[in-house]
Design a binder for these strands. Structure first.
Lengths: 227, 227
DNA sequence: TAGATTGTTAATCGATTAACAATC
DNA sequence: TAGATTGTTAATCGATTAACAATC
């Protein structure tokens, strides 16, 4: 099937772009802005019924036209002259992000960072429940962080059904990261947030986002040093 | 001055692109890849003298042509048929990132996250020294985290010269973030890494990067839910 | 030389945005 | 109606990459 030169194609659109629209794929840049819109909508939910693309843009550090295009990718429509329904847009973005229901998160590694993350109340507030905290250190296993008991990482393998979770946060030392990631993948996990300062290799079906403190500081340093 | 139609311009280049080359600006996408190259180079420093664009690309999750173009933005040249000098490229990237010398970092907020960051050895290994840790809680002030004594945030204002730092890490509660950011800006800081789950407004001359756990999880959820 | 790898071009891709008709 | 704001087009921008001549 040829996708270009069809009735709906225009010279200003690339063939690949037309294809992505056909299969209803949302641009990556849009996906990363959705949580920013959502945050404003949650703040606004009690005070306003309607929000404009201008306000959403200010909250996300984007352009109003950009916002309108983003929302049109969701097939979400506002009212001309009025704006967008706060409640409806909030629900629509939650649905699109796959967080209409609460998500279960496991934290791997109960070091300083793992414990800090387990204690962080902001997760629950945004719909993420930390349901497990794993470590390999026998001195830590059994002790509690908040209401969560640290468990032996070896339990992971048998835990598939009883303690299932959708998302894993990797907070282990760099040397252990790949090994633990492999076990998570075996366990069927498809989303990993990696705080370890190494890239982990995973099958294509698994998505990983890495948060690397040193690299963030290095990028900051670049911009700080030339002003 | 017109920038297009000049002797050096070609139809395949946009006028804005030509301008950025004239003033020697490095593309943002390149800047964020430099730390990834640097990490590989540090790992390689003891074992290899030369590295290829192919290897650098694999480490950074980029394309080899992309790497070669990135390095040409640094005016850094390799040797055809051979590759790039590991030691020279490492030094060149450090210089470009403004981290030829060690950088001093202050952490604002000695809660779970602030203390976890202060304890994180990876920072020092990458050339960042945590020189101060501030909080407002009188029960925390004076106690130590590792070798650093928690100080009263009010000292920040008098501290300009004696305890100066180039980079600040914001690890305070959301409600305090803007206020503390304002004080940092007054203090003359130009680089802020913000872990608080709110955008902070700063003058244009200050750069901020935000790390927001919930938003990262929401983006992950999107990709995890459609596979 | 033959093989390897750079440096650069040209094309395409993906994202942004000004502008404005549509319309509440 | 007049004012406000959406939805969409068209242009441009910024980034990526295949391909290949240059050259070690």
């Amino acid at each position: 099937m040829r996708l270009d030169s069809g009735a709906g194609s225009r010279d200003s659109k690339h063939a690949a772009q037309v294809y992505r629209e056909l299969v209803n794929e949302i641009p990556k840049a849009t996906v990363v802005r959705l949580p920013r819109y959502l945050r404003l909508l949650e703040d606004l939910a009690l005070s306003k019924d309607v929000v404009s693309s201008e306000e959403l843009a200010a909250a996300a550090g984007a352009n109003a036209a950009n916002v309108r295009r983003d929302l049109s990718h969701l097939d979400f429509h506002g009212v001309r002259g009025i704006g967008y329904s706060v409640a409806e847009l909030k629900a629509r973005i939650r649905q699109e992000l796959g967080i209409a229901e609460r998500q279960r998160v496991a934290i791997l590694g109960a070091g300083n960072l793992g414990r800090a993350l387990a204690n962080y109340g902001g997760l629950s507030r945004r719909g993420f429940d930390v349901v497990a905290l794993y470590d390999t250190d026998v001195r830590k296993i059994g002790s509690k962080v908040g209401s969560i008991t640290i468990q032996d990482l070896d339990l992971l393998d048998g835990d598939c059904t009883s303690k299932s979770f959708e998302i894993a946060i990797l907070a282990v030392p760099a040397v252990a990261a790949q090994q633990v990631a492999d076990r998570l993948v075996e366990h069927g996990i498809r989303s990993i947030l990696n705080f370890a300062p190494v890239r982990v290799n995973v099958p294509e079906k698994v998505s990983v986002r890495q948060v690397d403190l040193s690299m963030e500081l290095q990028v900051l340093s670049y911009y700080g040093s030339r002003l």
